[in-house]
Amino acid sequence: MPHNAAPPGGQGRTRAAVALSGWAALAVTALPGGSPLRWIPVLLFVAFGPGLALLLPGPAAPRPAARLETVALAAPLSLSLATLTATALFLAESFSATVFLVSLAVFCTVAAPLPAVPLPAATRGAAERVKPGPWTDR
């Protein structure tokens, strides 16, 4: 297996986990209010779920710089999508926590299997330059 190849099924499991994370966050809202088992999964989903659904790497294992870039961009992208969703629901006068979470969960379920948004570090390897030498093809 080449050095940068992903283990078989690894990305598929990650994409499935992101696709199902919204539904899991919605399910834990049935727990008693104020419980950390209720608000921690919801907070993690809203903060990272939609962004990871858009930025998940392709079938090959990403370079370390691309992994860092994915994590760094997932939170602001997720929070931006959550803000837009909440604003649209408020403007439509139909905001509730359930409708909000269902909207984001549907988004993640649809976006997770789609090809990832290309990231500069993933496509160019900008942060990791390999020095040319007799052992490389460059």
Score class of each variant (00 low, 15 high):
A121T: 12
L101W: 00
E128C: 00
A97V: 15
S35N: 15
A17I: 10
D137V: 15
L37C: 10
V102Q: 00
A16Y: 07
V71C: 08
V106N: 06
P59H: 09
A97P: 12
R38G: 04
L114N: 05
T70E: 08
A65Y: 05
M1E: 15
G9H: 06
R15N: 02
L20S: 12
L91P: 05
V130I: 14
H3V: 14
A6Q: 11
P115Q: 06
A127T: 03
L37A: 14
G51C: 02
L20R: 07
T109C: 08
A97R: 10
A97G: 15
A88T: 13
G133L: 10
V71A: 12
R124A: 14
T29I: 08
A19G: 09
P8E: 13
A47C: 15
G49K: 01
G9Q: 09
L37S: 11
G34I: 11
A111D: 06
P115L: 01
P64C: 04
A112L: 00
S21M: 13
M1A: 15
A25Y: 01
A61L: 13
T83C: 12
T70V: 03
L68Y: 02
S96K: 07
P8L: 13
L79N: 00
V71Y: 10
P32G: 08
L68V: 09
A74R: 00
A126L: 09
F90V: 15
L20G: 14
L101I: 06
A105L: 10
R138C: 12
T87W: 11
W39M: 04
L84G: 15
P32K: 04
K131I: 14
M1N: 14
A112V: 04
G133R: 08
A6S: 15
E93M: 10
V117P: 00
R38D: 10
V28A: 04
G125T: 07
L77N: 01
G125S: 02
L104E: 00
E93T: 13
P62I: 05
T29L: 05
L77R: 01
A25T: 03
P41T: 10
